[in-house]
Amino acid sequence: MFELVSSLRRHKHLVRDFVVRDLKGRYVGSTMGFFWSVLFPLVNLAIYAFVFRLVLKSRWSDQQPEEQTILLMFAGIVIWSAFSEAVARATTTLVENSNLIQKVVFPSEILPVYLGISSWVNMCIGLVFVLLAVTWYGYIDPLPAPTVPARPGDPEYMPLAFGGSLVLLPVLFALQYVFALGLGYLLSALNLFIRDVAHLIGVFLMVWMFATPIFYPPVMVVRAHYEWVLDLNPMYWLIEAYRDVLLFGQWPAVGGLLRFALVAALALLIGSSFFQKSKRRFPDLL
């Protein structure tokens, strides 16, 4: 672990070059370039809003205006996409860079690191839209207060707002990054032993996404007596914390955040030690 940190510190310029290459590489050669990184989450949102909001009518409560529901979904999508992108790309990154690993003395531990940073940058673009929407619907053109009474058991109505809890945002970023990096280290190394991991992870991430309350309120899961799914899902704790901070200016539940921090640290510990332990053999495995 200590060795890993010192190696990353030594190669910080290389990490930066890789991030720059990756961000540029996504859009170099396409005419609209950077515009795609903006358009993509918006299209995603439009699809999910249509399916879940208009067709399936999912909503958090009777009191909630349409715009809030869509924003809740959008925030969830942006965060989930960044997380799953970092994990999925990290899984195959060693195989994709096999020419570097086999032909050069190359610090392969930087690969999952740069992918995490790169997906975080993309996430920030999406989050800017979330914050703009909160500014608009919370302050410039505020949504009307609810007129119907709350149903028993529904979550309490909260207006869109910013609050002092925004200072937690970097903490959330860091926790998410650590978790994704830990999984990335574990899966990328594992994928060299069992190449099926790359395929499995695609399916697994999709199941995980729908098991996380992104397009529906968690309360529906509780009502269906599937609370255990939420209790096992760290990404649920994280996304709820993000929503509290980004949309409502609330302080997130400390319990969930602490549990997430614990899981993330554990993932990084296991992932990085497995990676470091098998790293010596990467050139032989490719």
Binding site: R21, G25, G29, K103, V104
Partner: peptide
Amino acid sequence: LELGAGFHPEFSGRENIHLNCSI
């Protein structure tokens, strides 16, 4: 051992020199 490992096809020669040197 291998010339040009790590070149990115979409980038110009200039950009690739930079990254390759870094690597």
